[in-house]
């Protein structure tokens, strides 16, 4: 039950969406948030998902992050059909292969940075000593060595988001999902966060999928997908990245 689903390692692309729709409600009240989209994301890619509010990009992110399942169409993560998995199986998939960074940081308050970063490892059943070492290493890798005992209230917004990134990468995930990671930060802090994500993508080959409004932030990505009214309006790649 708690062992990770065995997925193929070599299989590229990591993410394959084929004709995925997602609708809410039923009958005349039915609202279609995604109206048949196809997306492929390769290993080591850095994708920015863009679009106005209500364009379906958040719905798409929830499906990609295995928090939600498609109404129709297929989503294969490393070759596994996510739509056929149970709630708990998807939880295990998230635990072992995915990392999340949110706009509102979503750290546990009154809990030290170290314990926040340890959290996903606790669910994985990592032993205390190794857990602490890996959490410290992850905090160091986001430039927060020495801040282990600070609680979120004692950290700045930028630092909180770094803790959140450390928490997401401490498990060495296959894909990091970032939902408006700079939405609550000023431009200087935003740049720092984007540089951090870019470096993880560049140096460690971490696949990053990021939702953003901001064209400047999106320019850090290798590829941009624009959503409008539940469809993919256009895809473009950033030359020079």
């Amino acid at each position: 039950m708690t062992t990770p689903p065995i997925l193929s390692e070599s299989n590229s692309p990591v993410i394959e969406l084929h004709d995925v729709t997602r609708s809410y409600g039923s009958g005349t009240a039915e609202v279609s948030a995604l109206q048949g989209i196809d997306v492929n994301i390769e290993h080591g890619d850095f994708v920015a998902v863009m679009g106005p509010s209500g364009s379906g990009k958040s719905t798409c992110m929830n499906i990609l992050g295995c928090l939600d399942t498609p109404s129709s169409g297929t989503y294969r993560f490393k070759g596994m059909d996510v739509g056929k998995l149970s709630r708990d199986q998807r939880a295990l998939l998230r635990r072992h292969y995915l990392g999340f960074v949110f706009q509102g940081f979503n750290l546990l308050n009154r809990t030290s940075a170290l314990e926040n970063v340890e959290l996903p490892l606790i669910y994985r059943g990592t032993l205390a000593k190794e857990r602490r070492q890996r959490a410290k290493k992850a905090l160091a890798s986001v430039g927060l060595a020495g801040w282990e005992t600070h609680t979120p209230a004692e950290l700045s917004g930028g630092q909180q988001q770094r803790v959140a990134i450390a928490r997401a990468i401490v498990t060495v995930p296959s894909v990091l999902f970032a939902d408006e990671p700079t939405g609550n930060l000023d431009s200087a802090r935003s740049r720092e966060i984007m540089e951090l994500l870019t470096s993880f993508n560049h140096d460690q080959g971490l696949t990053v999928v990021m939702v953003t409004h901001d064209a400047v932030m999106a320019s850090y990505a290798k590829r941009m997908i624009h959503f409008r009214d539940g469809f993919i309006e256009k895809e473009e790649s950033n030359r020079g990245r």
Binding site: M1, D88, A91, L92, R94, R95, L98, L108, Y123, R167
Partner: peptide
């Protein structure tokens, strides 16, 4: 609620 959401997103199972 938010804390529970974080735990579920990180990979906590319902039973946990």
């Amino acid at each position: 609620t938010r804390e529970i959401g974080i735990r579920l997103a990180i990979g906590a199972m319902e039973s946990q």
